[in-house]
Design a protein around this nucleic acid. Structure first.
Lengths: 227, 227
DNA sequence: CAAATTTGTTCGTCAAGCCTAACATTTGAG
DNA sequence: CTCAAATGTTAGGCTTGACGAACAAATTTG
């Protein structure tokens, strides 16, 4: 049995696979039907039907009420979609002057429309970038996802000095706020303290030296590595 | 009643409108259901249904067995789609190094996926081009189509010296052939003779000076203006 | 650990696009 | 100017992806 090209999958199937893969990129907990439904903006019954169809195509394994896992074929398609998405985001920023909070929705649509040829040309024009504007790793053309590292800022120990590796692109408004604060991939900072019941994390950033208080949603969206 | 944005039209509706508009761009004969079906690769019944739906949305006028005409609203959407298509083609060639025979199919898909914002950014990056790689005029952002001029080479009088204004992008293979021959928009040539029953047109081109014989399909695909 | 709540599945329905087959209208050739 | 061929339309079905309602399983909690 041949591996289908990505373009033979329905738009919906592409979305499902990418979402399943993305859910496990930064945290190991398997994704659930209801979470998928919420992220995709559809009803759980729709996702349940969709997963069943993907299982029939051999792209995921799923027994009723069981966990949802990608097969090797499903993972290959998912990674291809993620590559498309992240290359598109990078292209929009680097070549067309988009800001990092504008690119997500545009890439979300385009990733279903661009050909493999176009992806290759963008990749070449960009010099084979390895990270997108939010710091997420761009899988290679060979389908090998580059393994991300790091932990959420909310989970980093106080006192550590760290560098931002990625910032979730899910919320454009939050990205604009981070821009104002001067927080971006590769920014270095020191975790000053976590205040438990206020759910506030305080960090110190240099140039200019300043302290920033971040709420739970913000410190969950920022991923860091020790430096 | 507000004018819908292009993006609210179905993929199919966008194709229909663009095709109806395009059919009358270079020749005044109104388009028929069967021609549309053939160009879109669907059955006439499908087109007939589709036209009826467009008529219901006020985008075309059409009585059963009658002619198909765009309304002002329909024309606006159609021109917007043509602008998208031609800007995309220009972008693919100028920015991503595509050759002119590769861009049509890619643009055909992308034109349904790009946002108005992306179109504007491409337009700006390209310096507001007025013609696409095949010589076709790119309508302005205000929706004003720039009026094309010219006649098919097959209809140009022998003895005239003319410049190519456009070459139909319908057939990639023919475009590659024209590339080999050194024929492109703005190439100047002299019509030597039409040989009626052979359906061959002979033209003389300079640098290097040479005579080229073109069959009917080729001399129909090339549009020229007196120079 | 049993009941209540949450989560997941199945089933019937709908709209969009497409198809084929049957039918209607127009056209154009003799 | 008639009738056959070409063209267009309608009707009925199929598939996909969505929905809600009803039901099933699993998990949480008292």
């Amino acid at each position: 049995m041949d591996v289908m090209p990505v373009s033979d999958l329905s738009h919906a199937a592409q979305d499902y696979l990418k979402l399943i893969w993305s859910a496990t990129e930064w945290s190991p907990a398997p994704i659930t039907v209801s979470v998928m439904a919420e992220r995709l903006g559809v009803r759980p019954s729709t996702v349940s039907d969709g997963i069943k169809k993907l299982a029939g195509q051999g792209l995921v394994t799923h027994a009723p009420y069981g966990s949802i896992e990608l097969t090797d074929a499903g993972r290959a398609h998912a990674v291809a979609m993620v590559r498309r998405h992240r290359l598109l985001e990078t292209f929009l920023v680097d070549v067309l002057g988009y800001s990092w909070d504008e690119v997500h929705d545009e890439a979300e649509v385009l990733e279903h429309a661009v050909s493999d040829t176009l992806i290759d040309r963008m990749d070449r024009k960009l010099g084979h970038p390895t990270r997108d504007p939010h710091g997420d790793p761009i899988p290679g053309a060979d389908g090998r996802p580059s393994m991300p590292k790091g932990t959420q800022l909310s989970a980093a120990a106080a006192g550590n000095t760290v560098a931002i590796t990625r910032i979730s692109d899910a919320d454009p408004q939050m990205l604009r706020y981070f821009t104002e604060l001067g927080l971006a991939p590769d920014t270095r900072l020191t975790v000053t303290e976590h205040r438990p019941y206020a759910d506030v994390t305080t960090v110190r950033v240099h140039e200019p030296e300043r302290d920033i208080d971040l709420g739970a949603s913000a410190s969950d969206a920022i991923w860091v590595v020790a430096v």
